[in-house]
């Protein structure tokens, strides 16, 4: 591939993004280009005979191919209790405040395969709050949502997740919450009883609930500054005053004007509260 070829590839990426938008209404134009391009290249390898142009053709003409592309372009990687100190802080600093609400609404935005949804449900269960909690778990990827509802994961993950769970202050063992069979584990489906899984696209959709806590970890890292800011504004409008926002531990709010409405609870762990310091007190 010489320099002309690499420029051609840049053009193909643009055209694919445009095709997805014009043909199907999915706008990836506001995604961070570097990761998007990498994912598109990988899709071209697995689904496009090596070329992005072939992907464009299939996106335009093949019914059902959209879903394949959406799966390839979304973020389905997570683990249970990823970054245990975050879940410990949620347990020790956030849930005690949420306990003062008669009904607790939590929005997990970009829930992917659901690992963090089940992690949250376990936290709430152990803190005695789950009966009065509603978790809205949303993603734009239908297939990820289906897998999230099933709660079935490779058994080889269980060791790391169990360690995470204990580091996050777990009161039992993670094995109490899943059954293992062959190479798979299945999370206790009772944990799902207060979860609503729903399709929601942060790029295009609006506010749909009033929440005391929004959890959206490692999703905005894929968004441009403008889309990150728009999404933070969406979270601001979804949160009650004094509500909490939990982002990924390496996300930066330094280029988002909407971040000014959020006050750090633990800046290092990226846990924030809506409202200025005066609003948070008491």
């Amino acid at each position: 591939m010489d320099s002309t070829d690499t420029e051609l590839e840049d053009i193909e990426v643009e055209l694919l993004v445009r095709a997805l938008q014009r043909r199907h209404g999915y706008d990836f134009g506001q995604y961070s280009p570097a990761s998007l391009k990498r994912r598109i290249q990988q899709l071209a390898h697995t689904q496009g005979d090596g070329t992005i142009s072939r992907l464009i053709e299939r996106v335009l003409h093949e019914p059902g191919f959209l879903q394949v592309v959406l799966e390839g372009l979304s973020v389905p990687v997570s683990e249970m209790f990823r970054d245990p100190p975050v879940f410990r802080a949620l347990r020790e600093q956030v849930l005690p405040v949420l306990a003062s609400y008669p009904q607790i609404n939590i929005w997990q935005a970009g829930c992917a395969h659901g690992q963090e949804v089940y992690s949250l449900a376990i936290l709430l269960e152990e803190e005695g709050l789950y009966e009065r909690t509603q978790i809205y778990a949303t993603d734009f990827n239908e297939s990820a949502l289906r897998q999230a509802q099933e709660g079935i994961y490779p058994a080889k993950e269980a060791q790391l997740w169990s360690r995470n769970y204990l580091e996050a202050g777990g009161r039992h063992t993670l094995a109490d919450y899943y059954s293992a069979r062959y190479e798979l584990i299945k999370l206790d489906q009772r944990l799902r009883r207060n979860v609503i899984f729903a399709n929601h696209n942060l790029v295009a959709d609006e506010v749909f609930c009033e929440a005391q806590l929004v959890v959206c970890r490692n999703v905005l890292i894929y968004f441009s500054d403008a889309l990150q800011d728009r999404t933070l504004a969406l979270f601001r409008h979804s949160l009650v005053r004094g509500g909490f926002l939990c982002l990924g531990t390496r996300e930066s709010l330094d280029f988002a004007p909407s971040a000014k409405d959020f006050t750090p609870v633990d800046a290092g762990l990226r846990i924030y509260r809506l409202g200025g310091r005066s609003a948070v007190r008491g």
Binding site: S32, A34, S35, R39, V75, N218, I221, Y222, R250
Partner: peptide
């Protein structure tokens, strides 16, 4: 590069992170 994330450069020479596989 931070642990647990891929580190990428955007064309404006700013850093991006990803948790892709």
């Amino acid at each position: 590069a931070p642990s647990g994330y891929h580190l990428l450069l955007e064309t404006d020479h700013r850093f991006s992170l990803s948790i892709d596989p």
